[in-house]
């Protein structure tokens, strides 16, 4: 009665599909939180730390996204959502496209650190 037909875990499939956007969201949250808290509590040395840290976080996120884009099969296996069914190419294609979108978002977000003073208010 309680033995359903099995297929790959849906949580894995959702994570696979959203891996790129999740990384983008994590990057945005991390750089925004770090920037806001550092500027609020760290005093003068915040201006020295913030740009480098944001650039480093951006490069790390971009690298992870490029890995996800280049090796989607490995990611799918790691998340236990790989099977041979007809949905698989769909998931892989959609996941990779989302990774590209996220990569653009991450680079766009992080590029601000190269151009703007870290803790100056815009008024």
């Amino acid at each position: 009665m309680n033995e359903p037909i099995h297929e790959p875990p849906v949580a894995g499939a959702i994570l696979f599909l959203l891996a790129g956007p999740i990384l983008w969201g994590g990057h945005l949250l991390a750089v925004y939180t770090f920037h806001a808290v550092t500027c609020a509590v760290a005093g003068p040395w915040a201006t020295a730390v913030v740009p480098g840290a944001i650039v480093a976080a951006t490069l790390a996120a971009a690298g992870a996204l490029l890995l996800g884009f280049s090796f989607p099969g490995k990611l799918a296996r790691a998340l236990r959502c790989f099977d041979q069914d007809d949905s698989q190419p769909f998931l892989i294609r959609a996941g990779r496209l989302l990774t590209v979108l996220s990569l653009a978002g991450v680079l766009w977000t992080g590029s601000g650190a190269l151009a703007l003073a870290p803790c100056v208010q815009f008024r």
Binding site: L28, A36, A104, W108, T109, S111, G112, L116, Q121, F122
Partner: peptide, 15 residues
């Protein structure tokens, strides 16, 4: 809000 934080969200808004 500091200008750099605004830039993060400006970028996301355009993205």
């Amino acid at each position: 809000i500091p200008a750099l934080s605004l830039a993060f969200f400006s970028a996301a808004s355009m993205a």
